[in-house]
Design a binder for these strands. Structure first.
Length: 638
DNA sequence: CTAGGGTTAG
């Protein structure tokens, strides 16, 4: 992709210089005159007349004449712009013909040409034959390797170049930094960069920020960013993207504000990251504002995909569909995003229909697409369809089922109550089960109330993920419910010993472009009294209609202690009531929360939508719940 | 002649 965009850039590069000191064509000049042959060739090269230049070059070769390096570089640019690989190879042969030794400058250009044509082997061969390699030669090879994701090879080139005492420059570092896949090599490189005094180069800085972010070292990335005196758009995009990709949307958005204050107008890359931040935080209104800017960069595929995903993840399928149908160019990510978006939001049928339509459009599904399809089947209880896709995905789409696919199928079987089959599958799959696998089984146990198996699955999860507070609480609740107090104490002890704390339940709701957070046990919201009194009234009215606060949801309640009173103040209930007080009836109440919804809040929300004619969408860390008219899109399974 | 930033699941 990169090579192609480079080719394009060359194709639209500045028009050829005019050099016509000599008449063009061979009319006025005898063919045997070596100087006129050379002039002719030079003119054809600058005029980008490839066929004639090639002809003239052929004649020059027969006469043993060579042009200067700049002229050849023009010719090679022309070959690149036209994708003329064969001509380019002829140029290569010509400049080496009859034992002629071109300058390093020219060989570098040839090297780079092979890299841009994606002919790494040829580049390597030429590189190996070079009598003298300068920093450009080495950097060209390093950059070729990093682009091809040959990280070890890129680092190896750097070592070899240092061994030959060629000093890396900012080009070399910005290139080789992308090849770091461990903190050790990165720290060493960063030191060398500082020693060489190159850390203030914007290219090096953005590369440093980016690689630190990719390795999850955000504080280091921020350190490099904060030292910046003069920056540019890409440096800003690197740091914003870093936070957005490491699910720190808040910080990404803060930096975005700072960037605008610093006078840098956002581009496609910035907005993609901003949308990703909105997606993570479920900031639908901010996402909508970004949508306005997206229109200016019409039809940027990546940006549109990010916009699409934002609407899906914010539970707004209407706008997601609007964006999707208007995208002129769709790739496998667009289709996968929309399919998964429909499935996660409870529109399984639509997801499967879209998958059909994707295939009819000739788009090739990938690993992730199939995950969305399996998720849709699982969600709709389509055991047979899901099993069919799972069994035949290798044959139909050439994709080997991975851990995640098994996870979906375990979920599918579990949801359908086929726990035995699910366990059998865990044993049969070629992978060691991981925490995600066991969580899929645990989900089934919760719904089908299989306490023993739930304990087993929870223990497996904790073996693999000993910091998972939610699973500890769940396990402790299960024991408490069976009066197994010794084991309750044991779980609590383990948590204490490991320093695992249960995260307080927190729900967020966006009203009038402001985010309101509700945290369990926190009464700091200015309208908390009004909310509580309204909540009590609602509960009272709902109880009149048969609602019973369910303190027995031990397998579900990850948020607090199991008493009716604490259930009453679960954060999502407060957020829902606040939404009802502050938004008109026609508006959807959208809530995001940090831990999974409990069974009592789920029933509460369902009954409330029926009683009050409201629509509520709650996104928990892994599922979506669209409540309307007394039912939830999750089908009471989560 | 050589260099940096963005999208789907988990």
């Amino acid at each position: 992709m990169k090579a192609i965009s480079k080719l394009k850039r060359i194709a639209f590069a500045s028009p050829s210089r005019s050099l016509s000191l000599v008449s063009i064509g061979s009319r006025n000049v005898p063919a045997s005159s070596s100087s006129s042959l050379l002039d002719e060739f030079t003119n054809f090269c600058y005029q980008r007349d490839l066929p004639r230049a090639m002809k003239a070059m052929d004649a020059m070769q027969r006469h043993g004449i060579w042009a200067d390096s700049i002229t050849y570089s023009e010719l090679i640019k022309c070959c690149l712009a036209r994708g003329a690989v064969n001509e380019a190879k002829l140029v290569h042969n010509h400049v080496f013909s009859n034992g002629h030794q071109p300058k390093t400058f020219l060989i570098n250009i040839l090297l780079n040409m092979y890299v841009k044509f994606n002919l790494l082997d040829q580049a390597q061969e030429l590189f190996d034959q070079m009598p003298e390699r300068n920093v450009v030669s080495w950097t060209t090879m390093i950059s070729a390797c990093t682009n091809a994701k040959l990280n070890a090879k890129a680092l190896q080139y750097l070592i070899l170049m240092l061994r030959e005492s060629v000093m890396p420059n900012m080009f070399t570092y910005s290139s080789v930094l992308r090849a770091c896949d461990g903190l050790l090599s990165l720290t060493q490189l960063h030191c060398s960069i500082i020693k060489a005094g190159l850390e203030s180069d914007v290219f090096v800085r953005s590369a440093l920020i980016d690689i630190y972010s990719k390795l999850g070292e955000l504080q280091n990335a921020l350190g490099v960013f904060n030292e910046m005196v003069t920056g540019d758009l890409v440096v800003w995009n690197s740091i914003i993207g870093g936070f957005a990709q490491n699910s720190d949307g808040d910080e990404a958005l803060n930096l975005y504000k700072k960037m605008k204050r610093a006078g840098f107008p956002p581009d496609q890359s910035t907005l993609t990251s901003v949308l990703r931040a909105c997606t993570g935080l479920a900031l639908l209104e901010l996402g909508r504002q970004v949508h306005v800017h997206v229109i200016k960069f019409d039809q940027d595929l990546i940006l549109n995909n990010a916009l699409l995903d934002m609407y899906c993840k914010c539970g707004n399928l209407k706008d997601a569909n609007f964006v999707f149908t208007r995208m002129l160019e769709k790739d496998v990510i667009s289709w996968s995003t929309m399919i998964a978006g429909l499935a996660q939001n409870g529109f399984s049928r639509e997801a499967l229909n879209l998958f059909q339509s994707m295939k009819e459009h000739g788009a090739k599904p990938n690993y992730i697409t199939i995950l969305g399809v399996l998720f849709a089947c699982s969600h709709a209880g389509l055991v047979e369809d899901g099993w069919y896709y799972f069994q035949s995905m290798k044959k139909l789409f050439g994709i080997d089922p991975g851990r995640e696919h098994y996870g979906c199928i375990i979920d599918l079987l579990g949801r359908a109550g086929k726990l035995d089959r699910a366990i059998k599958l865990i044993h049969e799959m070629g992978f060691e089960p991981d925490a995600v696998t066991w969580r899929a089984l645990l989900g089934a146990c919760r719904v089908h109330r299989n306490v023993d198996l739930a304990i087993f699955a929870a223990k497996q999860i904790l073996k693999l993920d000993p910091e998972d507070a939610g699973t500890y609480i769940l396990l402790s609740n299960i024991y408490a419910n069976s009066q197994r107090w010794d084991e309750v104490a044991e779980v609590r002890r383990t948590m204490k010993a490991k320093g695992v704390r249960k995260e307080p339940g927190c729900s967020w709701i966006e009203v009038n472009k402001k985010i309101h957070a509700f945290i369990l046990g926190d009464n700091s919201h200015p309208q908390i009294d009004e909310i509580n009194s309204h909540l009590n009234q609602l509960i009272h009215r709902l109880m009149g209609l048969g609602y019973v606060p369910d303190t027995n949801f031990v397998l579900q309640d990850l948020e607090g202690e199991q008493s009716e009173d604490s259930l009453r103040y679960h954060s999502e209930k407060l957020a829902i009531v606040f939404g009802m007080i502050s938004m008109s009836r026609g508006k959807t109440i959208r809530i995001r929360k940090n831990i999974r919804i409990c069974g009592d809040c789920h029933i509460f929300a369902k009954l409330l939508t029926k009683m009050e004619q409201r629509t509520i969408v709650i996104r928990d860390p892994i599922r979506y719940h669209h409540f309307q008219d007394g039912v939830c899109s999750c089908g009471d399974y989560w």
